[in-house]
């Protein structure tokens, strides 16, 4: 009976120890896939054009560890992006925020497509209309020439 009580006490102490250790850690260790899902939307300034999830430098490894630490601390995905922007500037984001000059990135392509479509449609309309006009003008001038010739002939016969 006494040994059972001692065992229960030991198990209880162990449980308290494990629970307090977990609480100190702040949460479960995130899976590498969770880290990479966020890392693929970030770029470190040291390695140009290489997303953080596939970048092999020591700097990028540290940044991925930073993401894991923040996830463990309970940061949400958006909070992690905000943290990285605050620390390293907006250029770390794969998708630049829609503000300031960055608006150009979002407005320019549709504007260019729209303008292109406008010019193309105008060009097509002109291309379609012009030959008809030209033909008409040609016909008219040809008719005028014959009419003039006819009138000249009649005038001469009178």
């Amino acid at each position: 009976m006494k040994s059972l009580a001692v065992s229960l006490l030991l198990v209880l102490m162990l449980g308290i120890f494990v629970a307090s250790a977990a609480a100190q850690e702040g949460g479960p260790t995130p899976h590498p896939d969770e880290v990479n899902a966020i890392a693929r939307n970030l770029y470190c300034p040291v390695c140009a054009n290489v997303p953080l999830d596939v970048c092999g430098t020591a700097a990028c490894a540290q940044w991925r560890q930073q993401i894991a630490d923040l996830l463990t601390q309970g940061y949400t995905e958006q909070q992690i992006y905000d943290y990285f922007v605050q620390q390293y500037g907006p250029s770390v984001l794969a998708t630049p925020p829609a503000s300031g000059f960055n608006w150009l990135i979002y407005l320019l392509p549709p504007a260019v497509v729209l303008l292109g479509a406008l010019f193309l449609s105008r060009g097509l309309l002109n291309w379609k209309c012009k030959p008809a006009k030209r033909q008409l003008a040609h016909k008219k001038s040809a008719k005028d020439k014959y009419a003039q010739h006819l009138e000249d002939e009649l005038r001469a016969r009178r």
Binding site: C44, A59, Q62
Partner: peptide, 10 residues
């Protein structure tokens, strides 16, 4: 000293 693109713990 200006610490560039680094993580604080390291």
């Amino acid at each position: 000293g200006v610490d560039y693109a680094d993580t604080q713990n390291e």
